[in-house]
Design a protein around this nucleic acid. Structure first.
Length: 534
DNA sequence: AGGAGCTAATAGAG
DNA sequence: CTCTATTAGCTCCT
């Protein structure tokens, strides 16, 4: 899927020296300045009852949301949220989005449109919090602090701001809900294609006859899709037993793969003890193309360089939905050694859960980094494979609670998913408003989120009513990663997902996020405002 | 392989 | 708000 396959990978091996330098703590100076600026505020509110929040929320614009969003996503088809992705976080040119509106004006309009209620709310919430908030400003001390950019300078929010943000954020989350009908329409079309494609590959192809049940990955299947069910990602696993993998490049994310002699139909691709990803992907693409000819409602989209997915689109009502089909190898043996220090979920989900995950297979997708013709030990980059743990990501996000009952019928709800959705959406909007942010992708958001879950491990760290505090904290995490240019792959800590992106660009994004955070998310408010007008 | 029963997300009624 | 219905996707069972 999406983010995953499209995230920026580390640069070419040659730039490694740089990366190491990058990684040194000295480089992480970003926060020093921030520290000075830090606002004096109170500690994060521990689990407050809901009344204040309720007050705020009732007043916010609700309905009608969909209209605008729908239209918006239509306009963007060529740049599907995560899918543009394909080019993925690569810097390929894409349709120019409307320039950002004048922020000042917008802010003003918003002030008048949304604020009328606020004095009341403020009073109410202040009254509510009086007893608790009375203490002097202090900063929460964090227990676990193994983070890359070890520096804990969280800005805590005044309760009043938190309440305001809460109402905006909740409204936005309301708008991002997927309509039942949209979901039904899309899934009908996608599921039928999926089923028949697998049937076809099994019956009518030689190389892919052993393909197994598709893995549904990506936002939609993680219930993280924002605003529209218009992007679907499936991985079609080819079981391979007994493979030899060799790291390709230094970061441990890419490998060359060789089948040990076996009857696997992919064996016929193997040359010089290398299973060439590009050749296999090419043939796979041809097969899908042939199949799709009989499925006239689906259109193939052109091959994109370095993208592991074969993408098809289909018009469902007024929406174009896209389906990414990714062929992958399923390897049922222990994970590559580069994953040894990854997946640090012991504190969060428990070591038993971790062990269970590590017993699962891992996947290899035909995705390379940088230019396809770069050679490494005589192998071209385009013939390398990248490891994928989409299935684990999906499972973790589904069972995200430290307590088993988190978000279940009889358990307390948390705001983890809400926070992640908001982060993805914010990134999406920022990218849309400024095309220099092209290189960032939703996988950066997801990875930031997973790391955040590992340092804030308790369900009570993500209380449902603390949405704005939690989201703010998550944003600050993201800013830190950006400012020090380090965001490590959650499974492969040696891969820095930001290493291919210029430091200046990272800082710019961090600044943009900070601005949103400090000003009550004007970019979200604008959306709500437009909604309200419809 | 296919069905029963479960869950999460959404939507609507009271 | 709570309660209930609906649906897609998932899991487990035979």
């Amino acid at each position: 899927m999406s983010g995953r396959e499209r995230h920026l990978d580390a640069r070419s091996p040659g730039s490694r020296a740089k990366e190491i330098k990058h990684a040194s703590p000295v480089e992480c100076t970003g926060f020093k300045e921030e520290k000075q600026k830090k606002k004096r505020t109170k500690t994060q509110e521990p689990q407050k009852p809901n009344h204040a929040e309720k007050l705020a929320v009732q007043k916010t614009p609700k309905e009608k949301a969909t209209k605008h969003l729908t239209k918006e996503s239509n306009e963007e088809q060529h740049m599907p949220t995560e899918s543009t992705k394909a080019k993925s976080c690569s810097s390929t040119a894409r349709s120019q989005k409307k320039p950002p509106r004048n922020p000042l004006k917008t802010q003003l309009e918003l002030e008048t449109a949304i604020m009328p209620e606020t004095p009341k709310e403020l009073k109410a919430s202040q009254a509510n919090t009086k007893p608790k908030a009375s203490g002097k400003a202090e900063f929460q001390t964090e227990e676990t602090n193994d983070e890359e950019c070890a520096d804990k300078t969280m800005e805590k929010m005044p309760k009043a701001k938190a309440d305001l943000d809460n109402s905006v954020l909740k409204s936005i989350l309301g708008n991002l809900k997927i309509k039942v009908k949209d979901r039904a329409d899309s899934s009908k079309v996608v599921n039928s294609f999926k089923k028949n494609l697998v049937k076809y590959l099994k019956k009518d192809t030689i190389s892919f006859s052993e393909v197994e049940e598709p893995l549904c990955t990506g936002s939609y299947y993680e219930n993280l899709k924002i605003s529209h069910p218009d992007e679907f990602d499936i991985m079609l696993p080819m079981p391979v037993e007994r493979v030899t993998i060799e790291p390709f490049g230094a970061n441990g994310a890419f490998y060359t793969v060789a089948l040990k002699r076996s009857s696997n139909p992919l064996m016929r691709f193997q040359k010089n003890d290398i299973l060439p990803a590009s050749k296999i992907l090419e043939e796979f693409r041809e097969n899908v193309k042939t199949f799709a000819k009989g499925f006239t409602e689906w259109t193939m989209t052109p091959k994109r360089k370095g993208c592991p997915a074969v993408t098809l689109t289909s018009q469902v009502g007024s929406v174009t939905i896209s389906l990414d089909v990714v062929l992958c190898l399923r390897v049922k043996s222990s994970w590559p050694s580069f994953t040894k220090d990854g997946l640090k979920i012991e504190q969060w989900l428990g070591s038993k859960v971790k062990q269970e995950h590590k017993l699962k297979p891992y996947y290899l997708v035909p995705k390379y980094e940088g230019r396809g013709n770069v050679e490494n030990d005589g192998v071209q980059a385009k013939d390398a494979w990248r490891v994928s743990f989409s299935h684990i990501e999906k499972d973790i996000i589904k069972k995200h609670g430290s307590q088993k009952t988190c978000c279940e019928k009889r358990g307390a709800n948390c705001c983890r998913k809400g926070c992640l959705k908001l982060l993805k959406y914010l990134l999406h909007l920022l990218k849309e408003s400024d095309s220099t942010f092209d290189k960032f992708c939703s996988y950066h958001a997801k990875t930031t989120f997973l790391h955040a879950c590992c340092s804030k491990t308790k369900d009570t760290d993500w209380g449902e009513s603390d949405l704005s505090q939690c989201f703010n904290r998550l944003l600050q995490d993201f800013e830190k990663h950006l400012r020090c240019g380090e965001l490590f792959n959650f499974f492969i800590p040696s891969q820095n997902l930001l290493s291919g992106i210029g430091k200046k660009l990272c800082t710019q994004l961090a600044d943009a996020i900070k601005e949103q955070r400090e000003n009550g998310f004007p970019i979200f408010r604008e959306i709500l405002l437009i909604h309200n007008e419809c």
